[in-house]
Design a protein around this nucleic acid. Structure first.
Lengths: 338, 338
DNA sequence: TTGTAGGCGTTATCAT
DNA sequence: ATGATAACGCCTACAA
């Protein structure tokens, strides 16, 4: 076997088939412009040679990649895994390929990731949340790259987005909690810096408190990374307070899972001794024991819708819309009236 | 604002800086070959113009992308999310970028995905498991693309790989189960077709049974997709048997989570009425109530090691090694002696 | 319907 | 140390 791999090119196929490279290219991209006879012949020799078009060359010549990029905080949180899976599936049915990049919740990495994806020639971009340096938006607009924001929608901004109102959603949950008689609430939040979803959720609790005549500034808040372990630690810390909270609300289900685990470990019964709530409604939420009261977010729908909208923007050269999806309160065992 | 985005190229930078394109290119790739003075000047104008090298053009000219591709069954199973995260982190520290592609456990899609990634010019490839049509391997070898297989190692094949012995691991767990007195075992397996990890695990149970003088052919097996819901259904079906199994072993933790949920729903106490075991030791396993007895697989280590090895293969042009990682039995509440 | 040839943005080889 | 210039593999007017 030869040591230097000999990869066939368009030219090789053309020579072998006895046609021009243009014809071979047409067989690949615009079949209708080629006679059935040559098409068959060319396809056969493509097959025989095991030819695959070189993507980079194609991208350069066509100025188009049929590729869409996505930048997410992490693949390890099920919400993004799910949403992206749906995003990808929808892209696929429209002939697009997905390029993912994750930044481990380090928003300062995002700018370079965007440049990298743009340098690769992505036709469009999916970004999470709204909050980022304005230069990024102007950069994208200057280069004419369509993009859509997901997992959030804000009334006071107008970039195309598909998501939900994190603040209103959490407010709804807090309203419920308060209506059940709870007055001592503790809140475990994700890191807020650079994460407007986390900020919105906290704000939702505060708004609810205020609406009920309570002082939002008295809300105990612990801010920590979105991990089970850190959720557990935060919960433990929070229960040192005197008086103890009767309910600990968490910024997402992962934190809540940690809280529930730690509570059991501390010998606390949920929800008798303390109620716990989450946010997202990942699969885990209904598996936990007790099952977790949370906000159900339609991650799959969001991913699929984002893909649809982005493709429309790309193909119709439209400027994109803002779509707000409904979330719902998922009342389960972990929350009880006091 | 102009409607046609004007993206600066190497040429633009060169013109603006009053040097040749070659010099600009050197400033980007081989700084040492350029005088400090011009370097500074060029870098400044690069900055000023907001220039970013075109990846596709670069790939074409350099025949190198610093990109590595990975094809996984799904992003939704935490084991791959974790492993890949580690894989990516390691790649990053060596200057490589990751391109992921998932196929929803449809192995027949893999071949095209491989071609796609190869067409994009990936410098190397991470694949899961060993089982695939031999043409794929010959294709990869013909094109001289380094690849490494993960999540499995087999004694009787010699492609480079980093993983563990799925069969031996599950045998260890089954041995434990049998040593605790269980004789009526039920097994819920993932879909075996095209998935050698799932097959190996089932085989491990069978081998253990045989070693204990039991007939492997009497082992009740339900084969189903790796989902919580299907795990629940399979568990319910399995408990219809007469006599009922005293332990239900599952091909992974996700199935086991479904089984535990369904068991509770059926009013069965675990492990008093029935024991349940999993495989993988994802975070969920220790969060479940009762906590899940399972096989701990070092997914992060596996991902990191795979990246190391693959990079070595690429940079040293070496042929790669086979590394078998240790797994361990994680004994938790869900398994009890009968 | 098919062929010719210019161009896409870099890198890399030669000169200078 | 720097500059010309030929690849790299493909697409796409434009011609025939």
């Amino acid at each position: 076997m030869s040591n230097s791999p000999n990869i066939p090119t368009l030219f090789d196929v053309a020579r072998e088939a006895g046609v021009s490279t243009a014809t071979v290219s047409r067989c690949l991209n615009e079949k209708q412009k080629v006679s059935q006879k040559t098409l068959d012949h060319v396809m056969k020799t493509i097959e025989a040679l095991g030819y695959t078009p070189n993507f980079n060359a194609r991208a350069m010549a066509a100025k188009r990649t049929n590729t869409i990029g996505a930048i997410i905080p992490t693949m390890e949180n099920a919400i993004f895994a799910r949403g992206l899976q749906a995003f990808q599936e929808t892209l696929l049915t429209h002939g697009y390929t997905l390029l993912v990049s994750s930044n481990a919740y380090k928003p300062q990495l995002e700018e370079e990731q965007i440049r990298t994806l743009v340098a690769r020639g992505v036709d469009g971009l999916l970004l999470i949340g709204y909050e980022r340096p304005p230069e990024i938006y102007s950069y994208l607009e200057r280069r004419g790259i369509p993009f859509i924001l997901a997992w959030i929608t804000l009334a006071d901004q107008d970039h195309p987005s598909v998501g939900f109102d994190n603040c209103a959603a959490m407010r709804m949950l807090a309203d419920k909690v308060l209506s059940m008689g709870h007055r001592k609430i503790g809140y475990i939040s994700g890191i807020i810096e650079g994460n407007d979803r986390a900020r919105g959720r906290l704000e939702g609790v505060r708004e609810s408190l205020a609406a009920h005549g309570l002082d939002p500034d008295n809300l105990p808040v612990i801010e920590t990374a979105y991990e089970v372990e850190t959720g557990a630690q935060a919960f433990e810390a929070m229960m040192q307070a005197d008086p103890k909270p009767t309910v600990v609300m968490c910024g997402n289900d992962v934190l809540a899972a940690g809280a529930i685990g730690k509570a059991k470990q501390m010998g606390l019964r949920i929800p008798d001794d303390v109620s716990i709530t989450g946010f997202d409604d990942i699969e885990l939420a209904s598996i936990l024991d007790p099952s977790l009261t949370t906000i159900h977010v339609p991650h799959r729908l969001m991913g699929g819708t984002a893909a649809q909208e982005l493709i429309t923007m790309i193909e119709e050269q439209s400027s994109g819309v803002r779509r707000t999806l409904d979330v719902r309160l998922e009342l389960r065992e972990s929350l009880q009236a006091v």
